[in-house]
Design a protein around this nucleic acid. Structure first.
Lengths: 343, 343
DNA sequence: CTGAAAGCGCTTACAG
DNA sequence: CTGAAAGCGCTTACAG
């Protein structure tokens, strides 16, 4: 209606259509705009009848206080940035799903970056234009400059899956080395001796830790890792690695840095010999994604507890908001060995 | 440092620590705050040297314009609400992943609601406190009142996976009936006659459409659906349905409303008889999620094209922002039959 | 090219 | 309990 009526030619209109405002409600209800504001503030002094009147007028007009304008007063914005790893990755997507619903329940609104592939530095900069209450960074390699930027903007950062040492920066991470050590010990006890390892991209510290868990546990028993490969955390990547490894080495155990790759390894091993796993070969993953327990796979794995991780993040977030200057905290989560049918 | 120095007892401080401001930069650089604003506005008149000075001062101070304050001027916020279906659902999570990265690439920032399970009406109301440029609703059952609320707030809505008839509301949806009809036809041509169907929650219109595609195609050949069940779109749900159906009926074909359930059906059928599929039983899914092409499943399915759906959403979004009063549009996406090994 | 001023929609002391 | 006023951090005409 409006936009077309004016004679303005279709320049790309950057303007947003106007939204109902507290003044509109005040006018309609015959009260001051302060009263309208009070009507929407819990515990503000306001005559009951007046509050009722304002609320019903607002409802009728479809008024909702503009959270952006409100936050200008210095209140919290309830906006939380999430730099998600790769949402195409099954573990990350399960993780983000739980984090998002946890935040929603706590009346926080996640502004999600990422989705797939690398998040550009530019995208991160852009999202910092918003006065976030906190930024949650999932996984890997984030430029050090980001931490500086956030510090200058007074936006606290919480890292998940990666421990970072910076002021006002909390971390929650799985004890990665412990997880793979658990897996290694289980297989050694079962009599496995020729170990292969399929890791993720070597740049990630979590990957180094998981590899270390394997090698150091082997060492304790006087064993050495026979071979290892790196892939990209995908089923296909795991499958390719397994083809290479099984063709070149006589392995009786393969430990993987995540479940998706472990399922790929399992799949490739079965194509070579349907019943090889677990008879001649043990395969163990990491994460315990939903598919791991599907009967077709029944994958033995190391659970990287999502629920606990998310609730730690939410706890750290509240504490940080409560006291922005509190000492930084590192919360370590114990992984759990889940014995199923592939070892 | 600061917060602890003051004698204020630890009342729950709602205040957000202050962020560097345009005035700070202006003061530091010895220019007016208007100049700072211009330095960050492409194409604004400003002496080159002055712009350089301001930019470098800003960089040093870690200044970024506050997008919230800026949007108060009536500019776009670049905030896009997404009411995601169930992020635990593999298709939805792949979909949201692509949507998020598409939005990011277009300089839009998704505010995600949902994650898992039902999104509460209260949560939706809360997110409408933010002046969103647009709200994207994925999937199912959204209260009619939501559309009203958005209309009053001048927030256009885009529905995905569900066609809704409302002013200024665009939709993009898959031709659901066409998809399942394609699957049905393929199986009839192969000689299948005894069809079962595993659907999703019956409340969803997309589910009704998918069921209709099966029954009406059967009818064309003088056939009737032997039996159908409803589940919750999960592997486990599909698996349970298959156990029931296969115990009670002599079926030679099962069509499922999504891939996760189809994989569950496949799994259950194989537990009964390893080689039954595709010899005695055909199984076809819907969506074509990543797992469908894993060799362990090699699922024949109906692809619900994500990339195309996302790019249509982005197109409709741009068009709607360009002209808020343009006629509503419904974009229908053709599903694609993907023949693999389970039919 | 540039600064001072008005205004975006809210909240919050400040007086009544 | 209530309204008028100041101010949050920005942008954008308005004069120079």
């Amino acid at each position: 209606m409006s936009g077309n009526g004016t004679s303005k030619p279709s320049t790309l209109t950057q303007r947003r259509p106007r939204r109902v405002t507290a003044s509109d409600v005040a006018k309609a209800a015959g009260v001051s705009r302060s009263a309208v504001s009070r009507a929407f503030t819990d515990g503000a002094y306001l005559d009951d009848a007046k509050r009722t009147l304002i609320k019903s007028t607002a409802l009728q007009l479809g008024y909702q206080p503009n959270a952006l304008a409100a936050s200008l007063q210095g209140n919290r914005t309830n906006l939380v940035g999430i730099i998600a790893g790769d949402l195409g990755n099954h573990y990350d997507s399960e993780f983000v799903a739980q984090l998002v619903s946890g935040l929603n329940a706590a009346n926080k609104w996640p502004l999600v970056l990422g989705g797939s592939e690398a998040v550009t530095e530019e995208a991160i900069r852009s999202v910092l234009h918003f006065p976030l209450d906190v930024l949650i960074v999932r996984g890997g390699s984030i430029q050090a400059s980001l931490i500086d930027d956030c510090a200058k903007l007074n936006i606290p950062v919480i890292f998940s899956g990666h421990v970072v040492d910076a002021p006002n920066t909390d971390c929650v991470s799985c004890r990665n080395a412990m997880g793979t050590a658990l897996a290694t010990e289980l297989l050694i006890a079962k009599g496995r001796r020729a170990f292969g390892y399929v890791g993720g991209p070597p740049s990630r510290t979590s990957q180094t830790e998981r590899l270390t868990g394997v090698t150091s546990q082997l060492q304790k028993h006087g064993l050495e890792l026979v071979a290892h490969r790196h892939a990209d955390f995908t089923f296909e990547g795991g499958s390719l690695c397994a083809q290479e490894l099984l063709a070149a080495y006589a392995l009786d155990a393969i430990i993987c840095a995540n479940d998706a790759m472990a399922l790929g390894v399992l799949s490739a091993a079965r194509i070579i010999d349907k019943t090889a796993v677990p008879r001649d070969l043990s395969v163990i993953g990491f994460d315990d994604i939903a598919m791991a327990c599907w009967p077709d796979f029944n994958l033995t794995t190391i659970r990287n507890p999502i629920e606990q991780t998310v609730s730690e993040i939410l706890r750290l977030l509240e504490a940080r908001l409560e006291d922005p200057d509190k000492a930084k905290e590192v919360s370590m989560i114990d992984p759990i060995l889940i014995e199923r049918g592939t070892h």
